[in-house]
Amino acid sequence: MAVRTPRQIGEDVWKTRIEKVNAELVTLTYGSVVAQLCKDFTNDYIQVNEQLDKMGYNIGIRLIEDILARTNSERCRSFKDTAEMISKVGFKIFLNITPAILNWSQDNKQFSLIFDDNPLSDFVELPDDGKAINELWYSNILCGVLRGALEMVQLQVEAKFVSDVLRGDDTTEMRVTLIRVLEDEMPVGDE
């Protein structure tokens, strides 16, 4: 069988093997989670970002297994392949979007995902307390998802948003940086 491109894998799985749910259900559920976090942390948005990231991490470490099981795709040979898989397979099958991959750094260890369309932030207007617009990364859960998912395949990355249309920026951009490839390490104290 010919090697399939990430785009084909993504399209294929999305069409045949994914159960769909109503987009507004997802949007409103995520919205109420964020709003509730803001309430619980009395509008300490830095904390809220952190919590969303943690929640995402816990989702990510599970989702990666799901992706790999559904797509039975091969090991990525470079970080560029990984980026392709994230956009064309990962985001495609879970959110039906394929963020553009741009702005590679010289050493190929950093890239940006540009979200033209972000189903999580439909209808959303950030609170106008003058603080949220500078501090809250509304879709920060996605950063955690990437971090968690990639950690399970031995890639330690840092993911963070650098701009968001909700804040009035032109684009929604997430910067992903490869920190190191984790080696299979012996657990401490294990002979």
Binding site: T27, L28, G31, V34, F123, V124, E125, L126, D128
Partner: peptide, 19 residues
């Protein structure tokens, strides 16, 4: 309805959105 769908707006709250 669109305003109401925003997670940071609750029913009967004053609408301050510039949009």
């Amino acid at each position: 309805v669109k305003t109401l769908m925003s997670p940071f707006y609750s029913v009967d709250q004053a609408i301050t959105s510039k949009v």
